[in-house]
Design a protein around this nucleic acid. Structure first.
Length: 403
DNA sequence: GTCAATTCACATGAAAGAGACCACGGTCTAGTG
DNA sequence: CTAGACCGTGGTCTCTTTCATGTGAATTGACGA
């Protein structure tokens, strides 16, 4: 777009008929007034949490369910209602929500506690203090007055994976040391099995109550989409079958409502950008590709240099050989690449771990195979489409300054 | 041909080091009245 | 006298390295038919 045309484009953009009425309704952090197909869970949660309004500590709860089954939305909905009643009746209730997956915020013991203290308006340095010092600060802040604190730990399984379960142990015992306040923990987990490798004491106290969120089926996703679309779009801005198609896509991989909503949002954005007034079925196909593509490219782009170097080595090697490549081969190419780029090469041990990480991220596909006399190794191939691979390659060449 | 032993090329684990970041307390320094 | 600059110490946290151990089937070579 030539610069002169930009203003004209903006003007046209503003005057353009917009498909969206309320874009927020399709964003991932939106909490709707009504939660479709989760009546049972809401009722259960409500019953469990109601005692907070009478200054009684409720049971600790654990919510299970795959991604996109409405766990987070449901708990937020329930706590919002709870808070509004508490405000009216002057019940001393505080809700702290924390997503344990967020890097640099809540993925270690220290950070978690520090973040909680910060949420209670107590400044805590990002690092430098002994961990038990932070615990003391946290205790004193909570115990300032008589109150009930609902501590919502989203993606709680990430805490276990990273550190030992000491954090959870300390948290479950926290009430014993408090005089005035009381803390109830609401854990949210994607992984139903995560309780198994937990200290038995923590397990029992953490899961006094459990609520299961089963995956949505295609029909339910359709209802959810229809509800959200009703809020987000003008009438007649969706062609027939659009919602059904989105629902079908999402139901295909384990009923993830979040993906379905995102798909619809991206499709609508594409439609809007193209200047059409309605979202069509083709837009959905396009949106699905775009989501996939953006996701991978974004991940690769934000990786550290070493990771990018390894990714590039794999792409290069696969271009040359076509076969799945092996760890040792990748390592050789990687070392050469490091020389060219001016990076200090890491040991093979580390590369092995990094390859496993790239596999987890879905950038590559690795399979550990034993080749008999020729040892055990990882067979690596790319997980992306040719077109995406080329884009990644191009991006990495710029990023790593390879000409 | 059969079978157990061997062997390869890494995978996977555990522990410890390096270096960045930060708070805190003590000491020094320069500016102020 | 005091505010601010400047150490040194001690803490967390991530990324790496080092050292050790594990692994599973192709290969080998002895053995018997």
């Amino acid at each position: 777009m030539a610069q002169r045309g930009l203003a004209a484009y903006f003007e046209q953009y503003v005057s353009n008929y917009s498909t969206f009425l309320n874009k927020k309704a399709l964003q991932t952090n939106f909490v709707p007034d009504q939660i479709v197909h989760r009546d049972d869970q809401i009722e259960q949660l409500g019953k469990i949490l109601a005692p907070t309004l009478k200054k009684e500590k409720p049971s600790n709860v654990l919510l299970y369910g795959k991604t996109g089954t409405g766990k987070t939305v449901t708990i937020k909905h329930v706590t919002n209602q709870l808070l509004s009643v508490a405000e009216k009746s002057k019940a001393p209730l505080k809700v702290l929500y924390l997503n344990c997956k967020l890097k640099k915020i809540a993925d270690t013991e220290y950070r978690l506690i520090a973040q909680l203290a910060r949420d209670l308006n107590k400044a805590v340095p990002a690092t430098g203090l002994p961990t038990d010092e932070v615990y003391k600060i946290f205790h004193s802040v909570i115990d300032e007055r008589e109150q009930i604190i609902l501590l919502i730990l989203d993606e709680i399984d990430h805490l276990i994976k990273r550190a030992e379960d000491e954090i959870l142990y300390n948290l479950t015992r926290i009430n014993e040391e408090l005089k005035q306040a009381q803390v109830a923990i609401i854990g949210i987990s994607n992984d139903a099995k995560f309780l198994d490798n937990l200290d038995p004491r923590v397990r029992s106290s953490l899961s006094e109550e459990g609520i299961v969120f089963p995956p949505y089926n295609a029909l339910q996703i359709k209802d959810i989409l229809a509800y959200r679309a009703g809020m987000a779009f003008r009438e007649n801005s969706l062609e027939a079958g659009v919602i059904e198609k989105c629902a079908a896509y999402a139901a295909r991989d384990h009923g993830d409502a979040r993906r379905a909503i995102e798909l619809l949002r991206v499709a609508a954005e594409i439609a809007e950008r193209n200047g059409t007034t309605a979202v069509s079925l083709e837009h959905i196909d396009e949106a699905e590709e775009k989501i996939e593509r953006d996701y991978i490219i974004e991940i690769v782009a934000t990786q550290p240099k070493q990771y990018q170097c390894i990714t590039y080595a794999i792409i290069k090697l696969l271009h040359a050989t076509k076969e799945p490549v092996l760890t040792g081969e990748v390592y050789d190419i990687y070392r050469q690449l490091c020389n060219r780029v001016g990076l200090r090469p890491l040991t093979q041990r580390r590369i092995s771990d990094i390859l496993a990480e790239l596999d987890m991220l879905g950038i590559i596909q690795g399979r550990v195979v034993s080749k008999g006399r020729h040892g055990r190794t990882r067979e690596i191939s790319l997980a992306t489409q040719q077109e995406v691979t080329n884009k990644i390659k191009q991006m990495l060449e710029e990023e790593l300054d390879l000409t």
